[in-house]
């Protein structure tokens, strides 16, 4: 046969799949969409804008202590997280559901037929960028708030290690909240569904559990609430001036435990998303 001699010329040549290549690919994908840029701009504006607003509206209290002042400062820089977590969840879901909605996922999965490395590289790039943007905007808010508060006669201690871990905790929380949304999006494969699921977990679930806890006065319901992402998050970026009262049977997690709770949520949805992505027809 004449064809067999010519085919030997066309064996695969050049570089193959690599995880580094996948990271570059996901970086190009993330940064080449307007929705990404807009979400990060909105998140930064919220973090900085609300922080400055809260610092400006500072009222000197008669019972003020240095610790309370430090608490007010950290609160100024992290107050916007309650809102920016919604933005980051929407973006996290869109990063993957945008591919399902447009059909891009078929291009992605034919380029990366093993699939899981495509999801992991996407999560990694999204996580790192989100952490960088969150941290930068929270720290900017903290510096501006410190300038404003000091001009009002306070003496904010920038060397307060606990304050810095709360600020970093806020950025880590936003990142993990975004990852939960990304994995929920992978499970649901639909933008509206993914965003709804993520916001449901962040906004609706705590309200439902809270109502249930209030009606039944059950301590376990109180404890469930403590382990939902939004509550675990507030522990991560909270700067507690006075320790919480010790109520029997009611668990209060500390910042480190809050981080572990969030990681557990990410892993939970991450594992389900991975199994489904691997198994399902795309």
């Amino acid at each position: 046969m004449t064809t067999t001699t010519t085919t030997t010329r066309y064996t695969a040549h050049g570089s193959g799949l690599s995880f580094r290549g996948l990271l570059v690919s996901e970086w190009i994908k993330l940064t080449s969409l307007r929705s990404t840029v807009w979400c990060y701009v909105i998140m930064s504006t919220l973090n900085i804008g609300l922080g400055v607003l809260l610092a400006i509206s500072f009222q000197q209290r008669p019972d003020a202590t240095a610790l309370l002042d430090q608490g007010y400062w950290v609160q100024s820089a992290t107050i916007a997280i309650a809102f920016s977590q919604l933005v980051v969840s929407v973006l996290g879901a869109l990063v993957i559901t945008g591919e399902y909605g447009t059909g891009m996922i078929r291009s992605t999965l034919t380029a990366v037929p093993k699939r899981l490395s495509a999801l992991f590289s996407k999560a990694m790039v999204f996580g790192v960028v989100t952490f960088a943007v969150s941290l930068a905007s929270i720290i900017t808010a903290a510096f501006l708030a410190q300038l404003i508060l000091n001009s009002r006669g306070l003496n904010i201690d920038l060397a307060d290690g606990r304050a810095w871990s709360a600020l970093t905790g806020g950025a880590v929380f936003l990142t993990l909240a975004g990852l939960i949304a990304l994995f929920l999006g992978t499970i649901v494969r639909n933008s509206a569904g993914g965003i709804s699921a993520a916001l449901g977990l962040i906004i609706v679930a705590p309200i439902v559990v809270q109502i249930f806890a209030a009606v039944t006065r059950a301590s376990w319901a109180q404890n469930v609430l403590e382990f939902l992402p939004s509550s675990a998050g507030t522990r991560m970026y909270g700067y507690v001036a006075t320790p919480a009262p010790n109520i029997p049977d009611v668990v209060v997690v500390d910042p480190a435990q809050g981080l572990l709770v969030m990681i557990a949520w990410v892993l939970f949805f991450g594992i389900i998303a991975s199994l489904l992505l691997k198994r399902r027809d795309a």
Binding site: G14, S15, G16, L17, S18, R20, G21, L22, V24, S25, E26, I28, K29, S32, L33, R34, S35, G98, E99, T102, G103, M104, I105, R106, S107, A111, V112
Partner: peptide, 23 residues
């Protein structure tokens, strides 16, 4: 199918993203 492309991305960025996976 021709629609396996994110509609919000430019053609060149779509191709760059795919090309990057294989360097």
């Amino acid at each position: 199918d021709a629609k396996a492309v994110h509609t919000g991305r430019s053609a060149i960025n779509h191709l760059r993203a795919l090309a990057a996976t294989h360097s």
